[in-house]
């Protein structure tokens, strides 16, 4: 009846997981992907109603894309600097600097999206003007909300690094960086959807 191996299997152990959860950020990314997949599928259904028009992308959104791409680069530099600091126990000045740059760029992106909404409004395109404008605001608004979550993560990291230096969990930094890169990839996807479908 009992035919099991009676030695513990070499699976994930407490000490390996001690740096915090590595899966959480990927699970979160999966859920956010599903959120935007749902809105994209809603777009496909809604497009069949016959009142579809076209919106040209506000030009500032291209500049915003560049800003977000650079911020991905800076957080990567910050992550690497932090990784080195944690390994050597040395100062984290470079990590802090790149982290600050990422924060500024992230906030710049949000400000840029706000200017894009202003431009749309100036063209007479509001949330309820037509289905295209509705989806444009929903996509960009939802993305900014998720990005603000990333900015909150950056602020938390900055505070922790400032207070505690190298006492920070390595995973916290890596997970925030992964999330931030995902925000960039998500934005590229949305830009393509907006450009092609709206």
């Amino acid at each position: 009846m009992a035919t099991t191996t009676y030695t513990p299997l070499p699976v994930q152990t407490r000490s390996a997981a001690a740096g915090g959860s590595r899966s959480g950020v990927w699970v979160g990314i999966f859920a956010i992907t599903m959120f935007f997949a749902a809105v994209t599928s809603a777009l496909s259904v809604r497009q069949g109603s016959g009142d579809w028009s076209h919106i040209s992308i506000p030009s500032i959104m291209y500049a915003n894309t560049l800003v977000l791409a650079i911020s991905s680069l800076t957080i990567e530099l910050s992550r690497r600097a932090m990784s080195r600091s944690l390994a050597t126990g040395s100062a984290t000045l470079a990590a802090q600097g790149w982290l600050g740059a990422t924060l500024v760029l992230g906030l710049g992106f949000v400000a840029g999206q706000y200017l894009a909404w202003r431009e749309l409004a100036a063209r007479g395109l509001y949330l309820a003007t037509n289905p295209n404008s509705s989806f444009l605001y929903v996509f960009t608004g939802a993305h900014v909300l998720h990005l603000l979550g990333g900015i909150a993560g950056l602020l938390y990291l900055a505070a922790r690094v400032a207070v505690n230096g190298t006492g920070l969990r390595r995973n916290s930094f890596e997970n925030t960086a992964i999330y931030w890169h995902f925000m960039g990839v998500l934005w590229l996807y949305l830009l393509v959807v907006i450009g092609v479908r709206l």
Binding site: V11, Q12, R14, S21, R22
Partner: peptide, 12 residues
Amino acid sequence: IATTLDLRARGM
């Protein structure tokens, strides 16, 4: 999900 994947005891 994260708990199940990451925090299982040794041998689990």
